[in-house]
């Protein structure tokens, strides 16, 4: 071994380090030359056997080889790391579509019912329920709508073979609740109702209502107006106005119908509200003393209000749905649009 051999070895080592393109290849070079069993330690081991005159140069060259190669490997390693990081960065494509599990969606009808439950929850209402298959007594007679009453005409009824019927309104729940407990009562009752309506854009043989009932000492029409207005604002938005028109229902006296100001035009008049600025929601009123008498409440001791509202109607105006059938068509695209 001569000093010149070490210089040659150094050239080949540096040459290999320069051409090694990956971190692994650089490591191979390091191991080959500088490793525990590498060429350089071999040389250092053989130094003691070398010609004395060659020894200082060989030592110096070996040291140079070690330092220069180590330094070069370090630079190369950094360069290679940068290059591979750049390659990885290039390969990383954040514009690829995201991966996600499908989001579910609530049906607008159940959504509105739930919103109403929540709104009335804040006012201290609990939620009552009743059967869809009702007795004539609960659906009509107890609500001061005896057989032969013209009001029955407006609620064309599905009668069943047993003489029972599919409830035409959620109002029978009022009766069931009052029958079961003394006043005060503060409930809402969402549920499905049925009328013999041929299905079209605004009619459906089954539909949903939310009934409300508050019976206590000194409940007044002013309370009814206040609570309905509160509901309207929370359901439809803070700017909504509510107006009341006198009407007739057998089980309330006085009776009213109430309208919300049109949420589309803000009351200026548009196609949705037929230029009136108002959208009819439903009926309400003060519980008729005759109804109290039926359930054994003393009409002198308590007063109360009751209201109903059509859920489909609220859904249609809240979401701008023009055909009630869409709510029962269950097209996935339609339902997902309304997911909140």
């Amino acid at each position: 071994m001569k000093a010149a051999d070490i210089l040659a070895l150094k050239e080949s080592a540096l040459g290999e380090a320069r051409t090694a393109g990956t971190a692994e290849a650089l490591e191979q070079v390091r191991i080959k030359y500088l490793g525990r069993k590498g060429l350089l330690p071999e040389i250092m081991k053989g130094l003691k056997d070398a010609d004395v005159s060659e020894r200082p140069a060989m030592g110096r060259y070996a040291n140079e080889l070690k330092q220069e190669l180590a330094a070069l490997l370090e630079t190369r390693r950094a360069a290679v790391a940068t290059a591979s990081a750049d390659a990885a960065t290039e390969a990383f494509d954040p514009t690829l579509p995201g991966r996600w599990r499908a989001l579910g969606a609530r049906h607008p009808i159940s959504r509105i019912i739930e919103d109403a439950i929540r709104i009335f929850d804040n006012l201290g209402f609990t939620v009552a329920d009743g059967p869809d298959i009702e007795t004539e007594y609960h659906n009509f007679d107890a609500l001061n709508t005896p057989a032969g009453h013209p009001s029955r005409d407006t609620q064309d009824t599905f009668w069943l073979e047993s003489g029972q019927l599919l409830r035409t309104q959620t109002s029978p729940v009022q009766i069931r609740v009052m029958e079961s407990r003394p006043p005060p009562v503060r409930i809402i009752a969402p549920g499905r109702c049925y009328r013999r309506d041929t299905t079209d854009a605004t009619h459906s043989a089954n539909f949903h209502q939310i009934e409300g009932l508050y019976v206590d000492k000194c409940v007044s029409m002013a309370d009814l107006k206040g609570d309905i207005t509160c509901f309207a604002r929370r359901m439809m938005g803070a700017d909504v106005k509510v107006r009341f028109r006198p009407h007739f229902f057998p089980f309330t006296e006085p009776s009213v119908e109430y309208d919300f100001s049109c949420h589309v035009c803000g009351g200026k008049g548009c196609r949705v509200c037929k230029q009136s600025g108002w959208i009819e929601i439903s009926g309400a009123g003060m519980v008729n003393p005759k109804v109290f008498a039926k359930v054994g409440y003393d009409p002198e001791a308590v007063t109360g209000y009751a209201f109903g509202m059509g859920v489909e109607r609220i859904a249609m105006i809240r979401y701008g749905i023009h055909d009630i059938r869409l709510l029962y068509d269950n097209d996935k695209r339609f339902l997902e649009q309304l997911a909140q």
Partner: peptide, 8 residues
């Protein structure tokens, strides 16, 4: 996704 069908 929730659906709702007619009772009849």
């Amino acid at each position: 996704t929730e659906i709702m069908n007619y009772s009849l």
